[in-house]
């Protein structure tokens, strides 16, 4: 194993040596959900929330680690409801459990799309149910510099539904072909934020300062649970807009974009 590591190090070194400026391929080093966001001891449970990065508006992958007083992992059914308390009202936001709602070895993984930051407007918490216990875990959600979450309200033809679109990929955009993944949810009620699976999306990357797009993009198509996958091409570095036009059958729901810099 050590020799393998040496080999990797050597390979990395040689890449540094043999590559010129602007050629560095940054290898992602992040381990998934290793960052502890918050931990509490309450009702005899030791709960810690792990994530890839500090929580922010948009799509967040998280893991809850739940242990009892004796430091033994808990198992069984769990449930999590994100909650925004705006004092006059409360609302939730989209959440998905890609591996199910079972606590396995004390862990449960889930993804949440925070639709707004915490702050003066209100504060976020996760309401965690394990067995018969319900624990409220307060969390901080920041507004990132470059938003990876957008929303739009459709026309009356579509009952003025509010859609939330978040950009999952590309996480680290590069020149050339990039995987594009967006997840789309709608706000059905304050507490119901289901995935939307039946949309057509037209993708147009655009470079505003040059007024051009890029060729050979592939429109995102629905894969699973409101996740849509496609390909987006960037012909150069710079500031790009990823424009998305949403359609449901023949109804145009609206257009939105993400701006990315690299």
């Amino acid at each position: 194993m050590k020799s393998f590591k040496n080999y990797i190090a050597l390979l990395g070194l040689s890449m540094v040596i043999f590559s010129c400026d602007h050629e560095e391929n940054i290898v992602p080093e992040q381990e998934i959900n290793s960052l502890q966001i918050v931990a509490i001891d309450e009702e005899g449970l030791n709960i810690s929330l792990l994530a890839q990065k500090p929580l922010e508006v948009g799509f967040n992958e998280m893991t809850l680690s739940i242990k009892n007083e004796n430091d033994n992992p808990i198992s069984g059914q769990g449930d999590i409801v994100p909650m925004m308390d705006m004092s006059t009202m409360k609302h939730s936001c989209p959440i998905e459990f890609p591996a199910g709602m079972e606590l396995i070895n004390g862990h449960i993984s889930f993804n949440t799309v925070f639709v707004m930051p915490s702050g003066d407007m209100g504060s976020w918490s996760l309401n965690i149910s394990v067995g018969d216990k319900i624990i409220e875990l307060p969390i901080e959600v920041a507004q990132p510099d470059q938003s990876r979450m957008a929303s739009l309200v459709s026309s009356s033809e579509d009952n003025e539904t509010k859609y939330f679109i978040c950009l999952l990929d590309p996480l680290k955009p590069e020149v050339g072909q990039n995987d594009l993944q967006v997840a789309i949810f709608k706000k059905q009620s304050m507490m119901e934020w289901p995935a939307v699976e039946n949309l057509e999306i037209k993708l147009t990357p655009w470079m505003p300062s040059m007024d051009h797009g890029s060729p050979n993009n592939i429109n995102p198509a629905h894969v699973k649970d409101g996740h849509y996958m496609g390909k987006v091409n960037f012909t150069m570095t710079g500031t790009w807009q990823i424009n998305l036009m949403l359609k449901k059958k023949e109804i145009e729901l609206g257009e939105t974009y993400f701006e990315i810099n690299f």
């Binding site: 602007h22 470079m207 505003p208 300062s209 150069m236 570095t237 710079g238 500031t239 810099n261 690299f262």
Partner: peptide, 10 residues
């Protein structure tokens, strides 16, 4: 770019 908010393009 003339707009300083926009990144250099390479």
């Amino acid at each position: 770019p003339n707009d300083s908010d926009q990144a250099e393009m390479f």
